[in-house]
Design a protein around this nucleic acid. Structure first.
Lengths: 140, 140
DNA sequence: GTGGCTGCAAATCATTTGCATATAC
DNA sequence: GTATATGCAAATGATTTGCAGCCAC
């Protein structure tokens, strides 16, 4: 837990129990959860937690570069505490989002068409290994 | 207009004036408009048009692969009638979305980590050429 | 003629805002 | 002690749904 205290202090963020819990949840659940998922899971052990605080905290963490906000799935934001640049894969069957650790050398923080590119986000969609396997076993 | 009639017929979609207008709007405005923008612009010449119809039509067009739904900007969907695979750039200053016609050869419809990748979407964020130019002229 | 489309209003869902209280520093 | 964070309830904004009447085929 001291780890998360240090992260907050380093970023000039006040250390509160709620922030520590959210930071810990993100760090230990690399499943790209929604704000609501984080809230529901933490609510059990922190009955007073409010969804507002979850949203506030996620916004602060994003502003300080401690999480990245994914919009791959449309209606809801998903949060990723893996700060290393990487891409994301959305499985059309199970809706899970999986980290893809490849780089696209062409476009990494360069200028293209006169535009200054600061961030490169790759979103892939398809069928994940586990769903592929299942469809091979099951039907066919 | 006959062009749009053919597109609808080819995709087994009933030909209605509303659908023709929306299709034409998307084809002639490659600005990645939101549903609301499309609605507002067409409302003038089609006073009876409802937002529900815009949403319904966009959903049908998406299902038939006639438009692609972008989620790059978070809170709202944007629609792109350019079907050719290409990437998108979001300017953090003017919020415009610009088509980027580069390819990422590494990952084009391949398997990565055992997952079957069907679609590859590149989202870039930064400052567009026109905003860059303006900031050079204006300040500094 | 009939089933799918249109359009209105109400509902929903994620997220934001206002504000009084509580807490970190 | 003070500025900031929390948490509740209400507001917002994009999108969806229910349903009656209309229109393409």
């Amino acid at each position: 837990m001291e780890k998360y205290v240090q992260i907050l202090k380093k970023n000039c963020l006040k250390v509160t129990p709620q922030r520590l819990e959210i930071l810990k949840y993100l760090d230990t659940h690399r499943t790209h959860p929604t704000a609501d998922t984080i809230y529901s899971n933490l609510k059990n052990n922190n009955p007073s937690l409010s969804k507002t605080t979850v949203y506030n905290t996620l916004q602060h963490l994003d502003e300080h570069g401690l999480v990245y906000t994914l919009t791959i799935s449309g209606s809801e934001s998903r949060f990723d505490s893996n700060i290393n640049p990487h891409h994301h894969f959305l499985c059309k069957i199970c809706s899970n989002i999986i980290d893809i650790d490849i780089e696209c050398p062409n476009v990494k923080k360069v200028e293209v068409g006169g535009h200054r590119i600061d961030e490169v986000h790759g979103y892939f969609k398809g069928v994940c290994a586990s769903c592929l396997k299942e469809s091979n076993n099951g039907e066919d």
